[in-house]
Computed example of a mutant assay.
Amino acid sequence: MPLKYYQAFELTAQDEAIARIDIHCQSLEDAKERAKQLVQDRPVELWEGPMRIARFEPLN
C-alpha cells in the first residue's frame, strides 16, 4: 500500500501556524494518531492538502 502525505500544524492561541510537521503513513487513522502525539501545550491540526482533517487540543 502506498504511503499518503499529510501535514500537521502546531498552532498559537490565535490559530496561527508556527510549525509544520510532514507525516507519511498508510492510513488516515495512523496520521490522526501521529498528529495526536504531537500535541503538547498548543493545538495541532492535521491536513491532507487543502482539506483540514482534524484538530487536537492540549489536555491542560
Rank of each mutant, 00 (worst) to 15 (best):
A19Y: 00
L46K: 06
E45W: 01
K32Q: 15
A8Y: 04
M51K: 12
Y5P: 00
E16N: 07
C25I: 01
K32T: 11
I21H: 12
I18K: 12
R20I: 10
D22N: 14
L59Y: 02
R52G: 07
P50H: 00
R20D: 09
I18N: 07
N60P: 13
A13M: 04
E45T: 15
L11M: 14
Y5S: 09
M51A: 10
I18M: 09
F56V: 10
Q40T: 08
A8R: 06
Y5V: 02
Q14M: 06
L28D: 15
D41V: 03
Q7V: 13
P58F: 02
M51F: 07
Y6S: 05
Q37C: 03
N60D: 04
P50Q: 00
E29A: 14
A35H: 10
F9H: 09
Y6R: 06
Q14T: 12
A54I: 04
A17Y: 00
E57W: 12
M1D: 08
E10V: 15
D15W: 11
Q14S: 12
A54W: 06
Q7W: 02
E10W: 05
A31W: 09
A13Q: 11
E57Q: 13
R34N: 08
R55N: 05
R34M: 15
R34W: 12
E33R: 13
E16Y: 04
E10F: 03
L28Q: 15
Q40N: 07
H24M: 10
P43K: 06
P58I: 05
E48T: 01
N60H: 03
R52Q: 15
E48F: 02
A13N: 08
I18G: 01
I18W: 06
F56A: 10
Q40C: 02
A31K: 11
F9A: 06
L11W: 06
A8K: 04
I21A: 00
K36N: 14
L11Y: 08
A13S: 14
Q7K: 14
Q40M: 03
D22H: 07
